[in-house]
Design a protein around this nucleic acid. Sequence first.
DNA 1: ACCGACGGGACCGCCCGTTGTT
DNA 2: AACAACGGGCGGTCCCGTCGGT
Lengths: 214, 214, 214, 214
Amino acid sequence: VSPATLASKGARTRQRIVEQAAPLFNQLGYKGASMRDITEATGLEKGGLYNHFGSKEALAVAAFDHSVSITAHRLAAARESAPDARGQLIALAREFSHWAKRPPLPGGCPIMNTAIEADDTNPELLEHARGAMNDLHRLVGSIVKAGVAAGELDPEIDRYALASLLTSALEGALMQSRLFDDAVHMDRVVDHLVAYIEALPAPKRRGRTRRSAQ
Amino acid sequence: VSPATLASKGARTRQRIVEQAAPLFNQLGYKGASMRDITEATGLEKGGLYNHFGSKEALAVAAFDHSVSITAHRLAAARESAPDARGQLIALAREFSHWAKRPPLPGGCPIMNTAIEADDTNPELLEHARGAMNDLHRLVGSIVKAGVAAGELDPEIDRYALASLLTSALEGALMQSRLFDDAVHMDRVVDHLVAYIEALPAPKRRGRTRRSAQ
Amino acid sequence: VSPATLASKGARTRQRIVEQAAPLFNQLGYKGASMRDITEATGLEKGGLYNHFGSKEALAVAAFDHSVSITAHRLAAARESAPDARGQLIALAREFSHWAKRPPLPGGCPIMNTAIEADDTNPELLEHARGAMNDLHRLVGSIVKAGVAAGELDPEIDRYALASLLTSALEGALMQSRLFDDAVHMDRVVDHLVAYIEALPAPKRRGRTRRSAQ
Amino acid sequence: VSPATLASKGARTRQRIVEQAAPLFNQLGYKGASMRDITEATGLEKGGLYNHFGSKEALAVAAFDHSVSITAHRLAAARESAPDARGQLIALAREFSHWAKRPPLPGGCPIMNTAIEADDTNPELLEHARGAMNDLHRLVGSIVKAGVAAGELDPEIDRYALASLLTSALEGALMQSRLFDDAVHMDRVVDHLVAYIEALPAPKRRGRTRRSAQ
DNA sequence: ACCGACGGGACCGCCCGTTGTT
DNA sequence: AACAACGGGCGGTCCCGTCGGT
């Protein structure tokens, strides 16, 4: 999502700010993380920050997008690790479940955090959270769609329902595992989801083209 | 939980403060809700508030407990509305799902809100959130246990796993329905859960329990 | 100064308040000691205190007078322990010097404390501090006067100067001993004062009426 | 101690704050002087003040040090005005005594004020007060030491005792002169001290030091 | 005589954002 | 592009004093 290698000097510092602010916002929340926290984390002074971002909210949005991109890359990589649709769905769930023990960034899932905090107070952030969650749904949906096209999954499977179920259950489980500092909740939920995914129906008839499509 | 009828004058104002502060904390969060917000909601001055609560956190804890008790009562009533274990579990899920459209208090689920916000910042609130979530788990667990005792459910059902699944999926679905302002996510998840509950295995054979169901 | 034995019930609680407030004011100062501190020390509530004292300042004045009376009694007793003027002056200085190690009330000399703090802010308290300090001067003066009358001391001795010297040096030494938490400063000053007192001149001529007067 | 000429802008405002806060703290005390008082005196807003000092206490410490440096310079100048040890000691006492009528800064001696108020409440300030008082003692001690080396004073003179006496008596006298708004107490004490200093013994005999005085 | 709820205001500290300077 | 000074303003907390009720 971000090159970060080349780019002008200004863009590099901007990127550095985003990277160092992201965990702060994710842990402390939008209100809880102060601009001062960010000056301390980045080493820049107020003026330096405001040269790159017009407001705290603009920085928070950039940091949120960055946090999301980290998790999104992990999920995309997980998907690629499996050959078929069911495997990809399971890989997704398992990758997400690992975050209960080894979070890719401190503070839990940025989408959920933002959805909860920005609930009634911060429309800009909320919109980005919607976008990020939509991407998650689309990721699940595209796997199902490809699985159907590949003849692995029954076309009657409601991919929207599956996306809602996976995201809801995993987010809720992550929340609980963090609340109790115990990954057992996540494990139980993932077990259920994996069993459910494995039991997803194959096409009724004649669809034995296991890999004909695409 | 709320007598509100008798009690001394001080206890009544205290109760009034809690009731009027609860939705504020639930919507705006612990940091987002200011003591000034509460003075405006209650009509009391800061001095008046601090006669009843030694700190903002103490007030927030009381408000949280109040919010939880509201939701807990709803769930307890839902359970009582159904005769058998499966029915009670389904009633629980359906009651929870209604909150996506008609929340018993504004701002979503207080447990989730608190679990997310207090994550790294407010141990007292976090502890109460743990307690409330534990109660939820115990509620599910006690239904399953009773269902097993009544011969309705297979004793091999893992009631802890079921509790983790129900709470996680429902909390996650509520979060998403609020995020998108669309109850469809909740509906999809509840459909899954209801189907899963209905398919819970009955005891293998020879129900020697006093209430041989079905 | 205070009977404290009989008296009506109201007067007794008033006395109790004063006794328990005195060390607080002496340690924390007029501004530093809050009415809440006093409610906690006395066990009474705000209303109870304000039944006996019209304001914080009125209570502080009463507490100051009480503190002073404690020290004054000690000095009066010390004076009575010695037969002649020089002995009484020395007894005075020694009694005062003991307070560096074993203060009769916590927080140091109430007169000095009040003189310093009330300097530009609290005329009522300041006036009482003046009165108390004046009493100290008069105590020294009366000893000298009696000593002259008894033929022990030269009438040309400036008793005002002696009073200023003793009080100044002792107060200053007490302050330093408290500052450094080391009574050595007081000891050194007292040594000087005792030597000076012992060297005070006897009447020039014919005054061998060691106890003729009075 | 105060360049005030060059230095960066920040350092200049900081110095200005200190200079204008010092008399406030010295008159009103640490608790009595509010940050608002200082904003009014300096013309800066709270935000401006807190850019230079992390807390009220930090500002108070700087102000205290500034106040002490003012008095210390006066005493150092007084010492230099006299050629020999006795003269320097007397000059010290006389300079100090002038402060009863013409205080170099309003509110009396900052060391005594701080020693009294910070007694049980403010360890940081107390430590600085100890340091400042120690410097005073060392000043006296160094004069005596030089006087002994110059053959003016008997080596058996206890310079620690002399320092305790001078500082105690002068501080106490200043307190009383301020309490009664009457410099007579200071005058009497200084008279005693001057006489005592003049009577300090010279070396017994045979001054083999390079400067056989008197 | 005592309690305790309550008001109104002040406390210190921190907030976000701007501006001028380098 | 970065710093650092600074302004307003709000944050939670505590203050003293009053007043109705017991």
